[in-house]
Design a protein around this nucleic acid. Structure first.
Lengths: 190, 190
DNA sequence: GTCTATAGGACGATAGAC
DNA sequence: GTCTATCGTCCTATAGAC
């Protein structure tokens, strides 16, 4: 792996773990096994490297979500698969956690990939819910955009509950609650 | 207000805005208009002051939530009132945001008030949902604990969506989605 | 109880050798 | 392209005067 590549990957790890404010260039360089010169050769500074890292993380997250959302099954089954897919729950969402970072939010450039990713996810889920409504799987009274926002919020908030309690169980409990509310009336399974 | 008091209030503001990692003693002192000696006289250090600040924030949050949750109305009405109560949405949740802070999560002492507050909120909502089930307002098939977790998660995740998009609207959209899923079948209003 | 002075190290960035 | 040296500032904490 090239030095540039190692820098981006190290920044991704640290951004996930400690956020932008909590991540120093020095820590990134140590993890990447590179000197300061390498970083300032490939990037203009901390924020430029962070942008590359965040952009890649956002891309990977979209790809992973798309794999499940565009998978097989009814809309409800695909929403379920998305909510239940394996997650490093206690590490939190590598994209969503950045919204709590004051310097990410203050920067149009750094916030953009975060916003776009969550917005894309919401739109994908909204399309899926809409499809479910057409097939009669979801109540026609539901607003697909609203329900999609609630789904994304439950996932993001699930990470908060899990990290607060120190256990992934809280995430799963919330997801089960949401799924029970979403469950088509004519189904009795779990 | 005493110097000690001003220190705690300044720390609360900055912890909310920038988190633990992003808040320096110097910034707290400047905001409080105090010298370093004052802080180290009243507290053993940054984490001790942060603990006092977090504890107070947690207490205030519980009191504010209790006022709505123990208010008048049916269980569904009270859940609605809780979800729709006025919030500084773009500032995020002063308690929940701390879960994204690596040093808060790493410290049993700092994490405890965060965990207890969210857990208390979940239990309060669970009791309310249970009450609603008994009154026939919520489906008896629902698990109160699970639904309560989904409600808390939606709120916490709503802050994430709002901050990502830079607009409080995303929070409200998610809340409307959750409320539509929770809404008793025999009701048709909004 | 509050102040200023100071410590020793980390912060983010730049310079210049190789 | 990568390195080390250095800059000026900020970090958290301690010392000691008042």
């Amino acid at each position: 792996m090239s030095t540039r590549e190692r820098l981006v990957e190290s920044a991704r790890d640290l951004l996930w773990e400690r956020g932008y404010v909590g991540t120093s260039p020095k820590a990134i360089l140590e993890r990447a096994g590179a000197g300061q010169g390498s970083m300032y050769h490939h990037f203009t500074g901390k924020s430029d490297l962070a942008l590359a890292a965040i952009t890649r993380t956002a891309e990977e997250m979209r790809a992973a979500a798309a794999a499940v959302l565009h998978g097989p099954g009814t809309p409800y089954a695909r929403v379920t698969a998305y909510l239940r897919r394996e997650r490093d729950v206690l590490r939190g969402c590598p994209v969503g956690r950045l919204t709590m970072d004051p310097e990410v939010i203050a920067s149009e450039e750094l916030r953009a990939p975060v916003d776009e990713t969550l917005d894309w996810l919401r739109a994908e889920l909204a399309a899926l819910v809409e499809e479910g409504k057409e097939q009669g799987e979801f109540a026609s009274s539901l607003d697909a955009e609203e329900v999609a926002a609630a789904i994304v919020a439950t996932v993001q908030g699930g990470y908060v509950l899990a990290r607060a309690s120190g256990s992934p169980a809280a995430f799963d409990t919330g997801v089960r609650g949401l799924l029970s509310l979403l469950r088509p009336a004519d189904r009795g399974d779990t």
